[in-house]
Design a protein around this nucleic acid. Sequence first.
DNA 1: GCTAATCTCC
Length: 864
Amino acid sequence: MRGNYLLRQLHSSCSIPSYNFQSAKPKNSYPSKKKLTSQNNKLQNSSTTDSDIVKWNIAITTHMRHGQCECALRVFNSMPRRSSVSYNAMISGYLQNHKFDLARDLFDKMPDRDLFSWNVMLTGHVRNRDLNTARALFERMPERDIVSWNAMLSGYAQNGFVDEAREIFDKMPHKNEISWNGLLAAYVQNGRIEDAKRLFESKMDWTIVSWNCMMGGFVRKRRLVDARRVFNRMAVRDEVSWNTIITGYAQNGEMEEARRLFEESPIRDVFTWTAMISGYVQNGKLDEARSIFDRMPAKNSVSWNAMIAGYVQRKRMDMARELFEAMPSRNVSSWNTMITGYARSGDIAHARNLFDSMPQRDSISWSAMIAGYSQNGCSEEALHLFVEMQRDGERLNRSSFTCALSTCSSIAALELGKQLHGRLVKAGYHTGWYVGNALLAMYCKCGSIDNAHDAFQEILEKDVVSWNTMIHGYARHGFGEEALTVFELMKTAGIRPDDATMVAVLSACSHAGLVDKGSEYFYSMNRDYGITANSVHYTCMVDLLGRAGNLEEAQNLMKNMPVKPDAATWGALLGASRIHGNTELGEKAARIIFEMEPHNSGMYILLSKLYAASGRWSDAGKMRLEMKNKGVKKVPGYSWLEVQNKIHTFKVGDTSHPHTDKIYNFLEELDLKLKEEGYVSSTKLVMHDVEEEEKVHMLKYHSEKLAVAYGILFVPPGRPIRVIKNLRVCEDCHNAIKFISRIVGRLIILRDNHRFHHFEGGSCSCRDYWMSGGNLVALSNPLIRAGISKTTPTFAKYYKLLFLYLEYANMRICSDTLLDRVQDRKEVQGKVLCCSKHEVVGELSLTQTDDEDGMYANVRPYSL
DNA sequence: GCTAATCTCC
């Protein structure tokens, strides 16, 4: 009864060609094997002809292609006689529609499985990325043909098992062009472009698919010259060939060449048009993208999404929304793009709204929402959603693993990341190239640089992204020399540095204070690698010069930039002004940034701190007021750490943690010890104009201090304490944590929104050479290591000499008198005490001379 | 005439 009802429903929703269903009794379940056989026998002599069966089979295929499994089943069940093709079409259709169990049931019940059936099942497992089952099936097959071998080969290839793919290739009894291409694709897809190239050159008669594959491999490696050579050598070209080369140029910013080929191309399909749109979008040319989009004859969802993504990038959510509403069929990507857009423009509520109302979510939706929370300072919501995602059972395939890993990166969930790594290995996804890069990035961003290095070593063929990630990782952890060593290795390995590499290299120099080296790289990168400096490179240089006190040269560089300095560049100058107490310049930079980004809360706070540090309380107050009036929201500061798979979050003065009493008591104890050790709190950094004692109190309970205290209490001894803060670490906390690391004898790794700090034995890996507050930079400064390039006259020279001297002598400054004078740009005559790591060893005196540097440094050792 | 294996776009 119920079955009949269902059938009627199905029947009315199907649009099948008019076949005669009268001759068979409809069934809504599979006949048993035994029954089938007898039925086949019974109908053996009926009037059904082979050509009728073929017609029914076509109907099955058509339904399956449209995702109408029930309709296909109805046809199948109503057939008076079925051939093995009918079964195969059903099984194949089920697999295409991800009805895995139904496919297997039918396969098991099928009376006479032929080679075709086995192959269908095999490829089903392969497409389902279930390689173990695929292999087991492959071994069980009564006979195999070239299709079976090729399916197995491509299965391994697509899942990162290049060596296994090669093994299959070598073992197979016969090879055809698909086998050859399968191996070639294995190399290309897994980034082993040199192996691919060797294979390609070893043989002449490749089909067009392989030519395209080889060309696509070069494009993915951004080796456009090689790609173009392949394209030019091709005897025949199809649409894919044109699309690949056009995409190649478009993705690498060479839009003129892309456009030329686009006009020249004899055939343009939806891919060609879309490639042009996303090319223009990626190069920031939204109007050109839109005009192509409007001209485009038939758009698919990818074209719409590309255009929406363009508006999203520019934070034009109004335009994005308009297209989103207008597009005929939205897919998951469309929703995901919109979610990302709202999240990036800070409209987290709208993002969440879309997330909740979307018809289907994939792992990217989850990641986008989690990333959105995390970027908007809602770390708790981000973590919460991450747990919810796993509870929701979001299936982790290769790409969602990558997404999940990058989520771990963005919230620095190292333990979760490690668990994912374990599951990756279990699933057999850990080899292969882009998962390797994601793992590497995860460990870098979660603060485990040693694990990162291991992950890096395990990537078989490192591509430019792998190298860049490693260099950048070291840079962010303050290991400048290591970063530059990796850079040298990269060149030795024959990988050509790209613009991202140079950003990583310059920021390594900046984080390590290697001014000379940085300048050298900057000025030679065009000559050596053909890389034109972009605004990011300029920002790195302004940062590098500015932090080192060379504000004039930094400004000159900005004046001579080929493009107008952007907010980030001005931000670097502002940061440097702050370090060196140049309120005037800082103010100028901040004003310009306000005009460019009126809602950037970080800038208000920075300027406010700049005023506060120089005692201009009323100006600091005005900034806060202005912020309030303009409705700029301050991102609340949070610190968190993972202990035994739980994330513990703290905000300033937090008393909500169950162990609050323990934490605060411990901090009081610690405070006494800190004072004994000679720590003085930097009250200049507290923004508000409050009483001194109150300021000390406020500093004592910053979120990072609470988190560190909790870590010391609850992370097992011997393990590093890993704390993450969503904003930049407070300078006073930075200073205190250095002392704390010595007092408790623990390694404390703190990730702020800019870089990593490894605190150990009383010092930090950043060497205090990071954007700090007021003119306090030298107060707490161990081992300043810097060199200054061609210095402009006055104080930078003194710095240079002083720093070089101290670096040479492996000593640190222990007094701020000298540097205070330097910052006043007065003549340097003061005396400073020099210390080895913790002990005063002598007195440094600087005297004016007539030599090139104008200064002479001398250390008079203390005799004990 | 139907069913299986290789390449390009968000």
